[in-house]
Design a protein around this nucleic acid. Sequence first.
DNA 1: ACGTCTTCCTTACGTTGTAAGCTTATGATG
DNA 2: CATCATAAGCTTACAACGTAAGGAAGACGT
Lengths: 225, 225
Amino acid sequence: MPARKIQRTEGRTRLNRDRVLETAISLADEGGIEKLSMRRLGEELGVEAMSLYNHVSNKEDLLNGMIDALYGEIELPSHDDDWKTAVRKRSVSVRAVLLRHPWANGLMDSATQAGPGTLRHHDRVLGTFRNGGFSLAMTAHAFSALDSYVYGYAKQEKALPFDSGEEAAAMANVMLAQLPPSEYPYLHELMSKHVLQPGYSYADEFTFGLDLVLDGLERARDSEG
Amino acid sequence: MPARKIQRTEGRTRLNRDRVLETAISLADEGGIEKLSMRRLGEELGVEAMSLYNHVSNKEDLLNGMIDALYGEIELPSHDDDWKTAVRKRSVSVRAVLLRHPWANGLMDSATQAGPGTLRHHDRVLGTFRNGGFSLAMTAHAFSALDSYVYGYAKQEKALPFDSGEEAAAMANVMLAQLPPSEYPYLHELMSKHVLQPGYSYADEFTFGLDLVLDGLERARDSEG
DNA sequence: ACGTCTTCCTTACGTTGTAAGCTTATGATG
DNA sequence: CATCATAAGCTTACAACGTAAGGAAGACGT
């Protein structure tokens, strides 16, 4: 069947793992993770679904690979900065990546196997704390506390039905109208007198908590026996 | 067909939304969220899958209902405690609930519609901050920072392949052996000299970060203009 | 040119959520 | 008690899913 040969020669590149992962990521970016099926992914790559299994052992492996690829997008902490600004920049970058790929955070729960990108990233963050004068135990504390906050924030941010902007404000107004003020007085107060106020944006909460954690870590490091 | 009537009379209770939600929760607790299908849930309740749709509008509604039911398990902040211990107890309770139902955290991303249990819970937490002397803006900060940490921690805790115990230590040893020390020196150090040390338990990291956040919030409240 | 190995395709199976339409049980009204 | 509307349950069916099994076609070392 020469038709195939022509097609190949006309620029249809061969499949490989990276191309599969890349396409899977942009497919998930566009339509959400639930739109990513092996069949649709194959279609996008001009290939039958089963052909993907030559480069990925199953769907779980595909998802793990996508997560690991994403860790490569995160800006690693720089050696030129002091620990605090280095770690801070990294954290801002984590949030940016999770905003760009909203499906990723939920996927990391099921991602059992850490890939090389993930390990490299973690190693550099740990190193930044160690070289910043943190003891081993305090480094463990810091790593846990910081990333709990960062990933937790990203999770909340995604779950929230509002952040800012016209459309979101309209949505928040509808929510507020359905909220009995007598039953939920504090929620009502927060929504009407704060969230719906002009200039509010949930995105701004990120740096507050981030600096709170970073300052707390610095204090904990300094007051360590 | 009298067989059915007898069966009913013999204690086969009628279906209702609460019973559906309860059973779905315990099914997810036992076999993980991926084992929860409408067919299996029906089977567990002695009913065909389609019958569930009389009490739940679709699977998403079922999952939303499960989440809202779980919020009812969380210990609400008590009015008898000062804000810090009240909120602290609540946070410990959140973590306990998420440990009891490991599938819940990942589900909360997709839970668009907040139910009455969820709203009630949030309202009480907000009220605790307000009555603890937090301004409206600072309450928003506090709520965001604290819950980001708490839910983020629970997420990490579940994703981690180790925490403590014999079995986990064996797992960690295998991981360590596969970790090239030259490429990941800090990870290697942390694992061998800290995580694998007797007495280590990742669970202990929770209170460190929790108190760090709470102390930070107190300081922020006091230094507010 | 030939044999081997990889990549891709075809077909098929069991499982999923749920739409459509039917039957049976329940509870109010005559 | 008889009747009848409404709610609750069952049956069947469909499209989409992940992937096992095996065949065909291309790439590549010799």
